Computed example of a mutant assay.
Amino acid sequence: MKIVDHEGNPVRHGRATVNGVRLHYLTAGSGEPVLLLHGVPKTSYHWRHVIPLLTPQYTVVVPDMRGLGDSEHATSGYDMRNVAEDFAQLMTELGHERFRLVGEDWGAAAAYQLASAYPERVRQLVYQEMILPGFGLEDYSFLTPENVRSYVWLWHINFYSVPEFPEMLINGHEREYFSYFMKHETHDPAAITPDALDEYVRCYSSPGGVRCMCEIYRATLTDGDQNRASAKKKLPMPVLAVGSEHFIGADNERQMREVADDVRAVILPWGHQLAEESPDELAGHYLRFFAGEEPA
């Protein structure tokens, strides 16, 4: 599936070397900039349905996180403060001093660090479907009856943190593994379409793809220390906390109220992959928030 803007024009691909890593990114549309950050195990392709819903009013910048998608498989630098610096420098490189910021999953964790480090640059923050390390993520990974019953037991946080074994076990089985993993986190498994799986498998089965994914999780304890330090000063910009009824839900808002002063929230009746399960509804909430309206 080609990624296009609202007029059917293909998005523009670019590459930039920033903060010691070569990032791949997409751009489309015109107007004030919006930076869209994907999570794991996804790439910029995750935003394909949302992009044309934003481009009538905004310029969207959609990078692949370091080590993921078609960005460089860096050997280090996967803590979220450093990943956030990648994106801050990318926006400077593209001439965008101030911008709106949207992050989902690990992209949300990077977005929080970016907004904390550069509050003067971030007009508004959308924080979507992520528990910050240091603010509950570790608790979700515990083997407890409550976590197992909830179907939101994040066992993979511990699994990926083990050196070398995840790569050995996943390599060669990427399609089976990621197909189950991503569909399990949705409310509508059919939303993870064959074209999306093809793209994610292409990227994560490339040399070093699974290793880079695991390196993100191996920095979780460092991320927790960083987040607790950053939270000593609350975010000043307006924040929209977007949760899903069938995954993280109200915890998404709860933690944002711990780290930001101006928070509004919405919970959508879907699962974790909101940009693929309900792109129209999701983009509608973004646009209303960007316009200064309260959640519907």
Rank of each mutant, 00 (worst) to 15 (best):
L169Q: 15
D262F: 13
L35W: 03
R123H: 11
E258M: 08
T27M: 14
C203N: 11
V239L: 09
S278Y: 04
H6V: 11
L274A: 06
A190Y: 09
A260G: 08
L221G: 03
E120P: 04
T186D: 05
P194E: 04
V61R: 00
K233C: 09
V21S: 06
Y151L: 11
D261K: 15
Y286G: 11
Q255E: 10
N147C: 11
P279R: 01
H246E: 07
G69A: 13
L221P: 01
I3G: 05
D64H: 09
Y118W: 07
S76K: 14
D198F: 15
R149F: 13
E85Y: 00
V11N: 03
K232P: 06
E104Y: 09
V122S: 05
A241Y: 10
S116D: 12
Y112F: 14
P63E: 03
V83P: 00
Q226D: 15
A191D: 07
Y200R: 15
S161P: 05
S205R: 12
E7S: 02
A241Q: 13
E281S: 08
V122K: 10
E167N: 04
H24S: 12
A84N: 03
Y177Q: 00
V210C: 08
E277H: 10
Y217T: 11
A16Q: 15
A296P: 15
L101V: 13
P56S: 01
V126K: 10
G209P: 08
R175C: 07
P10K: 15
R218S: 13
E97P: 10
I267M: 11
T55C: 03
V148C: 06
F290S: 00
L90S: 05
T27G: 07
T55L: 12
Q124K: 14
N147T: 13
T59C: 04
R66H: 05
S116P: 05
D70L: 09
A260L: 12
Y160F: 14
S179F: 08
S76D: 13
H73E: 05
P236E: 12
V4S: 04
T55N: 08
A265K: 14
S244C: 08
P279E: 14
E72M: 02
G20W: 14
L132Q: 03
Y58M: 03
L235K: 10
L35P: 01
L114H: 02
P236V: 10
Y204K: 04
A110F: 06
C214R: 04
V60N: 01
D70I: 02
Q89Y: 03
M237V: 10
E120F: 04
D198Y: 11
L68G: 09
A74H: 08
E245M: 09
Q89I: 00
A191S: 13
L132N: 11
G292T: 11
Y217R: 09
T186R: 00
E138N: 04
P279N: 15
G172M: 06
D195M: 15
D251G: 00
V148A: 12
Q57H: 14
L221C: 06
E138K: 00
E129L: 02
L137D: 02
E199K: 12
K42N: 02
A283H: 09
T222N: 10
R254W: 08
A196W: 12
G77D: 15
L37W: 03
M182G: 04
G208Y: 05
V60D: 12
N19F: 07
